[in-house]
Design a binder for these strands. Sequence first.
DNA 1: GGTAGCGTTAGATGGTTGTAAAACTATCGT
DNA 2: ACGATAGTTTTACAACCATCTAACGCTACC
Lengths: 103, 103
Amino acid sequence: MTTREGAELHLTTRQFELIAKALADPRRMALLETIAGERPCPCQHLRDQFPVSKATISHHIKELVRAGLVDARKTGQYLNCEVRRDVVRAYTAELMRRVGRAS
Amino acid sequence: MTTREGAELHLTTRQFELIAKALADPRRMALLETIAGERPCPCQHLRDQFPVSKATISHHIKELVRAGLVDARKTGQYLNCEVRRDVVRAYTAELMRRVGRAS
DNA sequence: GGTAGCGTTAGATGGTTGTAAAACTATCGT
DNA sequence: ACGATAGTTTTACAACCATCTAACGCTACC
């Protein structure tokens, strides 16, 4: 139900910047794409698909969560990540609002 | 006529990354917004609105052009910048396609 | 309770990058 | 032609950041 909302989510300036930064690193973007691909994404799955240490993955996830792009809930010893698609949509909307429309 | 096209512009992986990087820096984003605000934007105008050296502005503009987000044509001694709104739209569309839609 | 697996934190490091100063190029006005 | 104005390039530097290793904290299972 968080997937399809009518009301547009509002992003603070701070969050807008954090999102842009989070999306800027290709590896982190790739991680985000993988998370988006598999519904509840066990963090460990990411380790198998990318040649990076678990510390690095942990760091990237933290940044994605900080930006609000990913929701991470710990169930047992696993960390389940999910993309906040409403936030992604809010970001693209804000981007269009700022530089996408004719003045 | 470049402002309103039916066909979606295709972004290479490289350009997608460059755009994300270009948007990541707050100052550069602010410059882009200013450029988007005034139609033909003399580069010098930007110097008055931001406390940065002209070297820095020149550098940022170069990055924006490299990413394809800005079109810069030199007329006389002035540099006129314009936002490529079709590219912005292509970026947001690609972003939505990658992580915005439910799997 | 011990051992193994998953994730986090701390510290170190190499690379990237935003920024400015200075020197340079180019164009305009007089 | 000269001076002023606009932008570029080079070089240098400081700050940031992605990455790793190693050590740690939890949870699960036997």
